[in-house]
Design a protein around this nucleic acid. Structure first.
Length: 928
RNA sequence: GGGUGAUUAGCUCAGCUGGUCAGAGCACCGCCCUUACAAGGCGGGGGUCAUAAGUUCGAAUCUUAUAUCACCCA
C-alpha cells in the first residue's frame, strides 16, 4: 500500500467494477418475482433535471440516500435505489432556446416539432452530465432501471392518470385568472411565483362621480389596470362613503361608467379606503367581481401589452409604457392627487424573472380537495411519517389551504395534454386520437385537433414513485418495492412534489408512495449564505473530490455571469479564501463530511476545515490498515484453530467494537447519520488507533510473547479492522472496499466485494465489561504518567522508574496482568510497589486511590510540583464542596432516586480520598 | 401579520428520556520527525450554555416572556 492515502487512485476503478458486475441491482442473482423471504427496501431518487449538474445539495442528499441504500443492501434487504431524471419542462426549454437564440433563430423559426427534436438531440448529447456525476459520488443506483419522465412508459402513466382523473371529474378545463408569465407566454402555478418586496409607487387617482358631485380618490400600485376597472369598492360600514354606495363613476380616460359597491373585503384603514376593482387583472378583485357580478374586462395581450379592449390611444403599448402614458394623462386632466413612494410585493416567475400578471385564460385544473383529504389523513394517522416530525405542520398548513392545481403550460417541451377538439369546440379526452374517435364514435369526416398545451412538469413527477416501477402494469417491481421506504428530500419541494406524490400515490395505487419522508437541510457556504452563481460562492462537489487550481476556480466563478460587474469582487473573494485552490479530498472524505453534519433539521455551513479533517481521517484509516496488514499478511492470524490467548486490549477492543456497532445501527435506523459517522470516527481514531494499535505492539514486538498471545492479537487486529470496514462502508464506500480486498482473505472471507457482505451485527456476549473497566484503569495509569512527563518537560523517550503506593489487591492484580503493556505504552523502565512510607521526592498522579509516584531526582523541580499539586487540590476542594452542599440538602437526599444519591456519595468519597492523597504528597514535599 | 427553526469554546457544530453533559473537530500554546500515519503523536489553555422569570431536590435540557438571526406562508 502507498504510504499516503490517494483517493484518486481507487475511486473510479471500484465504481466501474461495481457497476459492471451488477452489484447495484436487487435482482442480480435472484429473480425479483421469486419470494426470497427478504425484506425489500427502496428509495426513489428525486429526479434531477436533465439540464442539471451536481451541486452541493445533490451531493449531500445523494450521500444520505446512498448510505441508507448500502446499509440496507448489506443488511440483506432486497434493495433498490431507483435512478432517473426529470424533463423539467420550462427549464430545459429555456436552455435549448438559448442555444438556438445564439444561432440567431427563435424556436418559432423552427416550429414545434423541429424544436422538440432539437431538445431530444440536446438531451442525448449533454443530458447525462448529472448521471456521470452521480457515479463520481459513488451512488449505488440501479442504472439498468434508469427512467426519464418523458420516456415511453412514464408517458403512458401520465396519460392514464390524466384520463382517469378527467373521467372522474377531477380534471376540468376552465377560464380562470392564472399567474401569467408574459416572457415565457405560459401560465405558471402559484408555487412557481416568487414574491419579493421591491420599491415602487402608490398612485392616488381622482375618479369623478357621474352626477358631478365631486370625486372619489383611489390608490393603486398598478395604474395601467384602471383601463379594466369595473367598479370602485368601499367597506359597507365606512361612514365616510355611505352616500357614495350605489352611485356611479365616470371612469377617466375611457367612456365607461362603473358603480361604487360595498364589500367587507375592503380595509377602510388602508389607503383612502376606496379600492378600484379590476376583476381581470387581480386575484382579489376577481373574487369580488364574481360576488357582485361585475363585468370582467381583460386589457392585456399575452405579452402584457394593452389590447383592443382598451381605448385606442393605449393599444399596443407595453404595460409599463402604458403606465407612464396613463399617469401623464391623468395628471394633465387634473385627476392625479399624489404619488407616494411605496414598498410592495412584486410577483416574479421563478424561471424567467419576469413580473407575473394575473391573466384570464383557459387552463386545465386538477380539483384538489378530494385528493388532498386522504393525503392529509395519511400523515395524521401515521401511514407517512416526517423526519424530523415538525415538518408535518408545514405540510398540514399547506394542504388545508390548498387551491386547485393549474396543470396546463403554454410551452412545447413536456407531456402534451391528451385532449382533442372538434370544429365546434367540443373536447374529448383519451389516450390518443384513435381511442378518442373510437370512444366517441367520431369518424374521419370530423377533424380533431389536439390541445396545444403541455402538462406542468410536476404532474409527471407526482407519479414518480409508481410510474418508474412500471405502473399501470402490474410488475414485479411494483409488487416488491411499492410503497417505497423513505423519501429523502429538501424542504423546498414539500409542496411542489412531496404532497403531490402522496395525493397521486394514494389515488392510483391505494397506498402511500413512501412510509417516511426524511427532510434534510440546505448546504450553505462557510458564512451561512446560500450558495448562488450570482454571489460567486458556489462550490462544485466535483472540485472538492478532484481538487481545482485557483486560476481555474476563479475563471469558473466569474464566467457567464448575469451581473458582470460582480466579477471583480468575486475574484478577490475567491483568491482570498482559496489561496492555493482546492486540494483533492476524494469522494469518501466529502461523503463523510456530509454524513457527520447530517443532523436533523439543520442547515450545513460548509467549512473547508471540516472536509480537510475528514480527509485526514481517511488517511488515518489508511495508515492504520497498513500497519495491520504489515503485521498480519504472511503471519499466523489464528485462522487454523490453533490456540489463541487474548489480552486485555484484545477483549477491550472487541467489546468496544460491539458497542460501536450497536450505536451505528441505532443511529442509521433513526436517520442520525451524524451520530453513526461520529461513532465510527471516535472508535477508529481514539480507540482502535490511539490505544489498541499501540498496545498490540507490546505483544507483536515482544520476543517473549507466546505464539498463542501473538495469534490472539493478530486475530483481533484483523477481525476488528474487517468489521470496522464493513461498518464504515455505507458512508465511505471506496476506501473501505480498497482496504477490505486485502483484509478479507486474512479472516477467511470469500467474497468479491464488501458491498454485498453482511453488515456487522453486535454480539452482546462479546462485550466483556471487566475488560472495559480494567482498560479504563490502564488508560488512567498511562495518562497519569504522560501528564507528569509533559508537565516537567521530560523527554518523551526517556524511560522512567515508577513507584506505586496505596494500591488495592485489585490494583496489584491488574498491574501483574498488564505490566508489559504499561511499560511499553508509558515508556517506563520499571514499576515497583512501595511497601513502606519511605517514598523519595516524587511527582504524583492518581488512578482511583492508587498513587503513581515518579521520583524527582534530577528530573523535577520541587516548586513546580508543589504548585501543580496546589492547583489540583484546589479544584478537588471545589468539587467536594459542591457535592457536600448537594448531599446535605435534605430535599435532594430524600427526593432524588436512591441510585443518584448513592452515586453522588460515591463521587464524594472518591474525591475525598483523592484529596487526602494529594494533600499528603504536598506535605511530604513541603517538609523537605 | 401567521408559522417553523436557531442562539453552547475564537470558528463550525454535538449534547437522545432533566442527574460524570459542559463535549468534538478546526484554530491556539508547549514538547516530539518514537520503525502505520507530521494529512501524525503526547500534553495543555479556553465557555455565566442569548437574556429574564418559572417548574424541580436538581435545568444547556422542561414552561413562559424578551432579544437577535434564518427560513416558509400571506
Amino acid at each position: 500500500m502507498e504510504k499516503t492515502y490517494n483517493p484518486h487512485a481507487i475511486e473510479q476503478r471500484w465504481y466501474e467494477t461495481w457497476e459492471e458486475n451488477g452489484y447495484f441491482s436487487p435482482d442480480m442473482d435472484t429473480d425479483l418475482a421469486s419470494d426470497s423471504g427478504q425484506d425489500s427496501y427502496c428509495i426513489m431518487i428525486p429526479p434531477p433535471n436533465v439540464t442539471g449538474s451536481l451541486h452541493m445539495g445533490h451531493a449531500f442528499q445523494d450521500t444520505i440516500m446512498d448510505a441508507l441504500t448500502r446499509y440496507h443492501r448489506m443488511k440483506g434487504d432486497k434493495t433498490l435505489w431507483q435512478p432517473g431524471t426529470d424533463h423539467a419542462g420550462i427549464a430545459t426549454q429555456m436552455v435549448v432556446e438559448r442555444i438556438i437564440n445564439a444561432e440567431g433563430k427563435t424556436r418559432h423559426d423552427l416550429g414545434r416539432e423541429a424544436f422538440i427534436e432539437k431538445i431530444w438531440d440536446w438531451k442525448a448529447h449533454s443530458g447525462n452530465t448529472i448521471t456521470r456525476q452521480l457515479r463520481r459520488m459513488g451512488a449505488s443506483l440501479d442504472w439498468k432501471r434508469e427512467r426519464f419522465t418523458m420516456d415511453e412508459g412514464l408517458s403512458e402513466a401520465v396519460k392514464e392518470v390524466f384520463v382517469r382523473l378527467y373521467e372522474e371529474d377531477l380534471i376540468y378545463r376552465g377560464k380562470r385568472l392564472v399567474n401569467w408569465d408574459p416572457v415565457l407566454h405560459t401560465a405558471v402555478s402559484d408555487l412557481e411565483v416568487i414574491s419579493e418586496e421591491e420599491n415602487g409607487h402608490f398612485w392616488h387617482m381622482r375618479y369623478p362621480l357621474s352626477d358631478g358631485g365631486g370625486y372619489i380618490i383611489v390608490a393603486t400600485t398598478r395604474p395601467e389596470t384602471m383601463l379594466g376597472d369595473t367598479a370602485v369598492a368601499v367597506h359597507p360600514d365606512d361612514e365616510r362613503y355611505q352616500d357614495m354606495i350605489g352611485k356611479t363613476i365616470k371612469l377617466p380616460l375611457t367612456d365607461r361608467e362603473i358603480p361604487v359597491i360595498a364589500d367587507d373585503y375592503v380595509d377602510p384603514e388602508f389607503g383612502t379606503g376606496c379600492v378600484k376593482i379590476t376583476p381581470a387583472h387581480d386575484f382579489n378583485d376577481y373574487d369580488m367581481g364574481k360576488r357582485h357580478n361585475l363585468p370582467i374586462i381583460n386589457i392585456l395581450t399575452v405579452d402584457a401589452a394593452i389590447n383592443n379592449n382598451a381605448p385606442e390611444k393605449y393599444r399596443g403599448m407595453d404595460r409599463y409604457e402604458a403606465r407612464k402614458a396613463i399617469v401623464k394623462d391623468l395628471d394633465d386632466a387634473g385627476l392625479l392627487e399624489k404619488i407616494d413612494e411605496h414598498r410592495l410585493m412584486v410577483p416574479r416567475g421563478d424561471r424567467s424573472g419576469a413580473v407575473i400578471e394575473p391573466y384570464l385564460t383557459d387552463q386545465w385544473y386538477v380539483k384538489i380537495a378530494p385528493l388532498a383529504e386522504p393525503a392529509i389523513k395519511a400523515v395524521e394517522n401515521g401511514d407517512i411519517r416526517f423526519v424530523p416530525d415538525n415538518w408535518k405542520n408545514t405540510y398540514f398548513e399547506w394542504m388545508n389551504n390548498i387551491e386547485d392545481w393549474c396543470i396546463s403550460r403554454q410551452i412545447w417541451w413536456g407531456h402534451r395534454i391528451p385532449a382533442w377538439y372538434d370544429g365546434n369546440g367540443n373536447v374529448y379526452v383519451g389516450k390518443d386520437e384513435q381511442a378518442v374517435r373510437q370512444q366517441h364514435k367520431l369518424d374521419d369526416s370530423i377533424s380533431l385537433k389536439q390541445d396545444e398545451d403541455v402538462l406542468d412538469t410536476w404532474f409527471s413527477s407526482a407519479l414518480w414513485p409508481f410510474s418508474t416501477l412500471g405502473w399501470p402494469d402490474k410488475t414485479p417491481e411494483l409488487d416488491t418495492f411499492y410503497p417505497t421506504n423513505v423519501l429523502v428530500t429538501g424542504f423546498d419541494i414539500i409542496f411542489f412534489w412531496v404532497a403531490r406524490m402522496i395525493m397521486m400515490g394514494l389515488k392510483f395505487t391505494g397506498e402511500v408512495p413512501f412510509k417516511e419522508v426524511y427532510v434534510h437541510g440546505l448546504v450553505r457556504d462557510s458564512h451561512g449564505h446560500k450558495m448562488s452563481k450570482s454571489k460567486g460562492n458556489v462550490l462544485d462537489p466535483i472540485d472538492l473530490i478532484d481538487g481545482i487550481e485557483l486560476e481555474t476556480l476563479v475563471e469558473k466563478r466569474t464566467s457567464g455571469m448575469m451581473q458582470p460587474q460582480m466579477a471583480k469582487k468575486i475574484e478577490k473573494q475567491t483568491r482570498k479564501e482559496f489561496k492555493d485552490g482546492i486540494p483533492a479530498f476524494g469522494t469518501d472524505a466529502l461523503r463523510f463530511t456530509f454524513a457527520i453534519q447530517a443532523t436533523t433539521g439543520r442547515d450545513i455551513k460548509f467549512d473547508m476545515g471540516r472536509i480537510e479533517g475528514y480527509r485526514n481521517f481517511c488517511n488515518k484509516l489508511w495508515n492504520a490498515s497498513r500497519y495491520v496488514l504489515m503485521n498480519t499478511e504472511g503471519h499466523d492470524c489464528g485462522m487454523d484453530n490453533d490456540e489463541m490467548e487474548f489480552s486485555l486490549a484484545d477483549k477491550w477492543i472487541i467489546s468496544r467494537l460491539q458497542q460501536t456497532e450497536q450505536q451505528v445501527i441505532d443511529s442509521l435506523n433513526t436517520y442520525r447519520l451524524d451520530r453513526a459517522a461520529q461513532a465510527i470516527y471516535e472508535f477508529t481514531w481514539n480507540e482502535y488507533c490511539d490505544w489498541y494499535l499501540e498496545l498490540s505492539k507490546s505483544v507483536l514486538n515482544n520476543d517473549s510473547a507466546s505464539a498463542a498471545q501473538q495469534r490472539g492479537t493478530r486475530n483481533t487486529l484483523i477481525r476488528a479492522l474487517e468489521s470496522l470496514l464493513r461498518l464504515a462502508h455505507p458512508i465511505m464506500p471506496f476506501i473501505t472496499e480498497e482496504i477490505w480486498q486485502r483484509v478479507a482473505p486474512l479472516v477467511g472471507i470469500q467474497g468479491d466485494t464488501i458491498m454485498l457482505q453482511p453488515f456487522p451485527e453486535p454480539q452482546s456476549a462479546q462485550v466483556d465489561q471487566d475488560a472495559v473497566d480494567e482498560m479504563n484503569w490502564l488508560q488512567q495509569f498511562v495518562l497519569g504518567v504522560r501528564q507528569i512527563r509533559s508537565g516537567y518537560d521530560i523527554k518523551p523517550g526517556k524511560p522512567l522508574n515508577v513507584l506505586l503506593a496505596n494500591g488495592s489487591d485489585s490494583d496489584k492484580a491488574r498491574l501483574q496482568r498488564n505490566e508489559t503493556m504499561l511499560i511499553k505504552l508509558a515508556r517506563l523502565e520499571s514499576i515497583t510497589w512501595l511497601d513502606d512510607d519511605n517514598a523519595p521526592e516524587s511527582a504524583t498522579a492518581l488512578v482511583g486511590e492508587m498513587q503513581i509516584l515518579i521520583p524527582m531526582a534530577g528530573l523535577i523541580d520541587i516548586d513546580a510540583e508543589r504548585e501543580r499539586l496546589n492547583k489540583e487540590i484546589e479544584s478537588n476542594q471545589g468539587f467536594i464542596s459542591k457535592l457536600e452542599a448537594k448531599l446535605s440538602n435534605e430535599n435532594f437526599v430524600s427526593r432524588a432516586p436512591e441510585q443518584v444519591v448513592a452515586h453522588e456519595r460515591q463521587k464524594l468519597a472518591e474525591t475525598q480520598n483523592k484529596l487526602k492523597s494529594l494533600t499528603e504528597q504536598l506535605e511530604k514535599l513541603s517538609s523537605l
